[in-house]
Design a protein around this nucleic acid. Structure first.
Length: 257
DNA sequence: CTTACCGCCTGTCGGC
DNA sequence: TGCCGACAGGCGGTAA
């Protein structure tokens, strides 16, 4: 692969020299994901990519950047030597590009980016039980708890509201006071919410694009998020909003106790 | 230790 | 109609 960087920094400075040293000329052996990081494995290193909230990685036919806010272009040949071009695009530059010098997933997992991350919700054996046990003595609101990547990864602001609605839990409840039974429902709700979003192709408000560059404009059915003042789909009560840890939360005051 | 909140960044939208 | 401020999100850093 070859790496062309059009910009030196996204959210953080890009280690351009190190990235090129470790990645250029190397064979991309695998593409993985951990939490919201995309990982590109080569023999000596992992390329690490985060899309923030507005990021895209598009597989395009031309090496020339044509989409605004294209910050890097990776040229990767297939097994026949035919090149393709992976464009990293991110209007708000909340994303990240990094490289970790190591040859196996275990060493990667020890890296500061990943060392403190909680489990993957979609492959956990019993997410509800795990969340219940992790939450004991926690005084913070359950929504903040659920969004803490050290507890469990992958549950962002929108899906936290949605999952709590599905489980019938008020987002203001202290995490440590919610029963094991409710956590069992919540564990299932998180998995269902994420799977539904994945099936729908992701959640988007305006500028989503598929990896082949087509404008997606999927919008999954959101039960409460961004629906302040609208009737709850279960009981008709008007959806309320509030702010928690600087983030907007939406919930049904009747269904979520 | 735990929890809360700021700042990064730009496109979009509501209000005047 | 045009402008401008507020707001959205992930998440690391810092403060309380």
């Amino acid at each position: 692969m070859l790496a062309d960087f059009l910009r030196k920094d996204l959210r953080d400075p890009i280690p351009i020299k190190e990235f090129k040293r470790l990645m250029e000329g190397a064979v991309v052996e695998d593409v993985l994901r951990r939490s919201k990081y995309l990982l590109m494995k080569t023999p000596k290193a992992y390329g690490v990519f985060h899309l923030g909230m507005t990021g895209n990685m598009l597989w395009l036919k031309s090496r020339t950047p044509e989409i605004p806010h294209t910050h890097a272009v990776f040229t990767i040949e297939d097994k026949h030597g035919k090149p393709g071009y992976l464009h990293f695009i991110d209007a708000r530059r909340f994303g990240r590009i990094d490289v970790v010098h190591c040859s196996d997933a275990d060493t990667l997992a020890a890296h500061p980016h990943f060392a403190d991350l909680g489990p993957e919700p979609l492959t956990h054996k019993d997410l509800g039980k795990y969340l219940f046990e992790r939450s004991r003595k926690k005084k913070q609101p359950i929504k903040s708890f659920l969004m803490d990547a050290r507890v469990v990864v992958g549950v962002g602001n929108i899906y936290a509201s949605e999952a709590l609605f599905r489980a019938g839990i008020n987002p203001k409840r202290k995490a440590g006071t919610v029963t094991q039974e409710r956590y069992a429902l919540l564990g299932k709700a998180v998995v269902q919410t994420l799977n539904k979003a994945i099936d729908a192709g992701g959640t988007t408000f305006r500028d989503f694009k598929n990896s082949d560059g087509n404008p997606g404009y999927f919008k999954i059915q959101l039960a409460v998020y961004d629906r302040k003042g609208e009737p709850c789909e279960k009981c008709g009560t008007l959806i309320k909003d509030l702010r928690q840890s600087g983030r907007s939360t939406f919930f049904c005051p009747l269904c979520q106790l």
